[in-house]
Each structure stands twice: as structure tokens, then as C-alpha cells.
Amino acid sequence: MPEAVYADLSRCIGCRACELACERENKSSRISVKVLSGLAAAPVSCRQCEIPLCTAPCPKGALSCENGKLEYEAENCTGCGLCTLACPFGTAVLRAGIIERCNLCPGMETPACVATCPAGALIYTEPGSLGENIRQRRAKRMNRALEPPAPAGRRAE
């Protein structure tokens, strides 16, 4: 599975630092934070799909995918917008006739959004490892909950 920017929703505080960082690095933000039911915040950016649906309807082949790598040739783009309709996540944005999507900040070790995240909620990884991280954290917390409480007044210095 390809690497992409994932968000741990239990950690995201909805501060939108990722949007600001992306905007500074790429002129416009390719990640956007949606706040759901008042508190839960969900940052969404290109999923770097293995079989990207956005390429399928492209009439002139401006958006194509080879060996799992998405290529975009602006000169062939007609600006028809079919790709933005095709993306199931709404992360391909047509702005002034050009497709803007997350390209994982080439040239930087970590994408800017991940590097800036104050809560450490954004992760640049391949999706296989995500579940394991969460399982381990949960297990640790449960283990702690099973410990007897420390007797008050007699704690170790």
C-alpha cells in the first residue's frame, strides 16, 4: 500500500496548523480540516490511492498513474473538473484551471502538515501499520486501568 498522510482522529484538536503550513509551502492548502458534530476534527488530504479514481475520467490523460505514482501534466489539462467529481474524498481541487492535490511535499523529509501538527495527530505512513499502533496504545491503557490505585499518602518519591 502506498504511503500517505493519515490522521488519528482521537488526537486531532482541529487547530488547522496543517492547512496553514500547506498553504505556506504550496501557495494553497491541499489538506482541509472538517469539524464534525462540534468537536471531532478530521483532516482530509489526498489518499494517494493505489488505483486512483481521479485519473479514470480524464479525457486527455493529463492525470495518469504509473507504477503507483500519480502524474499530472498541466499542459494537457482542460480544466473540465471530472477528476474532482471522481475523487471519493473530494481532495482533488480545481483551482484556476489547475489540479491541486497533495504531493507529499517532495524535497522535504516529512510533509509540512505532518511536521507542524502540534498534537502529533498526523502520521505519514502506509496504512497497514495504523491499526497496530492504535491497538498497542489501547492495550497499554487497559493494562494501566487494571493496576490497583496507589495508596494515597504513601507514594514513592
Partner: peptide, 27 residues
């Protein structure tokens, strides 16, 4: 938030007293 979340990862209990529900309450 990153330090409080780190404490939580180790099992800490987080209490937030605030008249409003805020992004801090989320943690």
C-alpha cells in the same frame, strides 16, 4: 496537547473542567 496525549498514551486520566466543550475537552 502533544504532551498531554503522550501522558494519555501511558495511561493518564485527563479531566477538563470548563463551562464550554472545547477542543481540549476532546482529549
Amino acid at each position: 496537547a502533544r504532551q498531554v496525549l503522550r501522558a494519555k498514551d501511558k495511561g493518564a486520566f485527563v479531566i477538563v473542567a470548563d463551562p464550554r466543550l472545547t477542543p481540549t475537552s476532546w482529549l
